[in-house]
Structures are given as structure tokens and as C-alpha cells.
Design a protein around this nucleic acid. Structure first.
Lengths: 238, 238
DNA sequence: GAGACGCTTCGGCCGGGACCGAAGCATTCG
DNA sequence: CGAATGCTTCGGTCCCGGCCGAAGCGTCTC
């Protein structure tokens, strides 16, 4: 009976995540967007009333946060810590008995480019991380990362302030294991800022009802010019 | 019903960690040592038979691994991924409604120096990380880290090969948030190697029935000379 | 070999909690 | 205003899974 203090609460948190419906809710929120209660009910495969109960529990434990908007209630993950914990659990879950190569057909869009909580993942995420590493703007040592002085300048030029919001608690530069590519990509505050900037520039857009991203025509150009990233067979609705 | 594939297994893992007894078992194993079934039964506060059931489930899910030794069975965490997931959950758990400042009297030993899975934590862990950073042997950017070329040489001289076991999957250099100091310290393969080396040199020793460490007389000297680390009022049984 | 010890398996008990449908509040729209 | 929509609360059902003690099996000791 050594360290009960945090132990008991550890169990509470894990238990919250350990219900299938709630895990589905959290997974659905892993793309960083806010979803309504009924959307989440659909994602988790339970009735609206049951989902509502789950959402109340998750809110009370501060795993998710809620914002009223008209007659809707939008829920999102409460913090990047929560997202990290879920990531870490997924990493544990994804090893072990490899169930089946999920070569989904429509997964292709997800594999190409998607959001992962608040940063970019998929082949696009990997390609950007590779370019930034090649040019020594960032240094990724396995699961860890740091920004170089050169990199700092580059990001400033690109419209991102690497030092913005250096409030404590959130890593500037960290990595996140990509489930499709099985390689680390750029996460942390910097990853989030880069993702935001790409949206802002109109280089990527969300595909409806999905975490997948479409690369726009201007995005094609911009990514090629600025990052030397070139995705073949990229067709976008834009 | 988007990404069920990993979602369902995420819930299984979290659910395993979400039982109080099992969470206590995992917490007890967080110092990286292997413990017997009966020790774990005691730690988790349940009967031997109940604990045995929990251990079977945790083993089957590959969260822990077992080694027979005479009539004992030693259990340990199966991988650093599992330890990281637990850490991440603790980080989520430790925020929120701050229950009570746990100014335990015998916690003092833990706060001074302890193991955290397979690396060093507490004031000793922080002090070492600080020195290594000051001398530019490592670069820690919030939760991430990297080793410099200088650092590589230093660690070699100190009897640690930073490139040993660069098998994939385990980060060489990462950080881990210290619950007592609230600051990051050195984890990853390098953190583990450093910890091992300190044991090997006889600079630190485990305190019985605890994750806490005692710094030996030779450790006092060595840490002061090599790292400039000086802990006041350090009394050791050695 | 007999006994002590460590651990697991088995059988039975019991409570927590996930679930749904119906009813109750809000909010928006006609 | 009344109707439709989004969400939550309530009441009741049901099953999963944690718990223990007793018994079984393997290992070490005398």
C-alpha cells in the first residue's frame, strides 16, 4: 500500500477510458475538433441518453470540456495531456497480437493526411517532419524533439512564433507515433501551430465527417515550394 | 463508428488499468523492479487468489511479464511503453482537484532520490538533468530531449554507450515529469543507462521495500566530482 | 516422505454500472 | 404561441466482473 495517493485516481481515470462507449467518444475527439452530444452518441454506438451520462462523467473528471452554442453542446478534449494519455494507451494497444492489416479502401484518405488531436499526421505529417529534420530546423531523437536556432528563424518567416504561448505545461516540440506510417511525426505546440498555419493559408481543408484532410491546389504549390513536399495522385475538391 | 479497430482495444487496455487493485499492482511495478505475486497482492490490498486473477489478465494483455524462479513468480512491467502510458495517465490524474498537499514525513526519502520505472527521479534526477543540460551534454526542450555530440563523448567516458541497443522502439533521450519536483527529468534509454551505471558504480542503493534510493559515501564523492551534484544532509546506511 | 510455503483454479456471492425508453427542460423556428 | 429539435434526468432491468475461501498443484526444507 505504498503510493495510494495518485494510485486511486489513476484507476479512476483509466476506468473512465476503459468503457467501450467512452473510449469511442474519446477516440472521436482525438482529432481536436469539438463535436455535439448527438454526434458523439452516434460515434460511440449508444443511445443519446446513455451518451449523455458518459459525457457528464467525462466532463466531471475534466477529461473533456463543454461549450454551449444555441441548443447544441459542443464537447472537446480538455487538454493535450489527455490526448497524450490516449495516444500512449493506443501505443500499448497497437502492439501485441496484430489483428489484421487494416488495408481499408477509404482509409487511404486518412493515410495520406489527417489531423491527430491538433497536429498533422499521415504521409503529409511524416513528409513535413522529414523535411524539417533534413534542413536541421528541428532535431527529432526518437520520440523526443527540439527546435534549432535556424529552425526558429524559419518558423518565424513562415508566420509561426515558436515562442508564443510558452506558458508552462505544454511541450514546444515533441513527437507522436503515426499509426499508419509507424514513424514519429511532429507534435507539441509547434506541431499544432504548423497545422493551424496550414489551415490559415488555405493549404489544407477538412474532409467532411472525417479526420482526413484534403490538400488544396494552392497547398500543392505552397508545400512543394516551401517544404519540397510533393504528394503524387493528389486530387482535391478545391 | 469511425476507427473501431484500435478503439476497441484502447478500451480493453484502459479497462485493465481501471480497476483499483490492478492499478495498484501497476503502480507498484512502476519502479522497474520485478515483484512476486504475494508482494503484489499485499500492495494491491486484495487476497492472493484475487491478485492471481488480476496478474493473469495483465499478463495475457502483455502489460506485465512473468519469470518463474523457484517457487516464486516474479512479475514486472512488460515494456517502457506500458510505463509511459501509466505516466501519462498519472499526469492527467494529478491535475484537477488538488486533493491535499501530501507532505508525507517519510516521503522525504522518495523526494530526495528514487527510481521511476528504469531511470532516476526526485531531487537527484532533477539535479543530474540540470547539470547535463548546463554543460550542453543534452538538450531538453520541455518534454523532449536530444543528446549533443559533446554529450555523446561524455557518456562514453562515463562508461555508457549512448548508441547501445539502438534497436527501434525505445527513445534514446526523453523526459518524464517528476511528480514531486514538478519538473522534467531524464528518461528514455539514456536515462535508464545512467541509472544502471550509478548502481554499477555503487553510488546509489535501493532502500528496502521502497522506490527510494540511498546515496552511498562513494556516491557522494562521485556525484560531486563528476556532476557537481551535492545533496545536503544526506545520510546513508552505507 | 511429510510438512510448510507460494501460487493458481474453482465455485458462489454480490454490487456497481451500462443500457434503454419515456418524460422533462431548454432553445429555435414557424 | 405551439411544434420541432437537442440534450438531460429518471426509473427499472440486467449482466459483467471483482471478491473471497477452500481446495489443488508445484517447489523447497527438514
Amino acid at each position: 500500500m505504498t503510493n495510494m495517493v495518485s494510485g486511486i485516481t489513476l484507476a479512476e481515470i483509466a476506468s473512465l477510458m476503459g468503457d467501450v462507449a467512452r473510449a469511442n467518444i474519446l477516440s472521436a475527439l482525438m482529432d481536436g475538433r469539438a463535436l455535439t452530444a448527438s454526434e458523439l452518441a452516434w460515434h460511440s454506438g449508444v443511445s443519446a441518453s446513455t451518451a449523455s451520462g458518459h459525457l457528464a462523467k467525462l466532463s466531471e473528471a475534466r477529461l473533456i470540456s463543454m461549450a454551449r452554442q444555441g441548443r447544441h453542446r459542443y464537447y472537446r478534449l480538455a487538454s493535450s495531456e489527455v490526448a497524450q494519455a490516449i495516444e500512449a494507451l493506443m501505443a500499448v494497444a497497437s502492439v501485441g497480437p496484430k489483428r489484421h492489416r487494416p488495408v481499408g479502401p477509404k482509409d487511404e484518405a486518412l493515410r495520406r493526411a489527417r489531423t491527430c488531436y491538433d497536429h498533422l499526421a499521415g504521409r503529409l505529417g511524416i513528409a513535413l517532419a522529414d523535411t524539417l529534420t533534413e534542413r536541421h530546423y528541428i532535431v527529432l531523437s526518437d520520440s523526443a524533439g527540439a527546435v534549432t536556432d535556424e529552425g526558429r528563424r524559419f518558423f518565424c518567416d513562415f508566420g509561426i512564433d515558436p515562442d508564443a504561448g510558452s506558458g508552462r505545461g505544454r511541450a514546444l516540440c515533441r513527437t507522436c507515433l503515426d499509426w499508419s506510417e509507424r514513424r514519429p511525426h511532429l507534435a507539441g505546440r509547434l506541431g499544432a501551430a504548423l497545422c493551424d498555419r496550414l489551415f490559415e493559408l488555405g493549404w489544407v481543408e477538412r474532409i467532411k465527417d472525417s479526420r482526413a484532410l484534403a490538400i488544396t491546389a494552392s497547398g500543392q504549390r505552397g508545400l512543394a515550394e516551401t517544404f519540397g513536399v510533393r504528394e503524387p495522385s493528389q486530387v482535391s475538391g478545391d
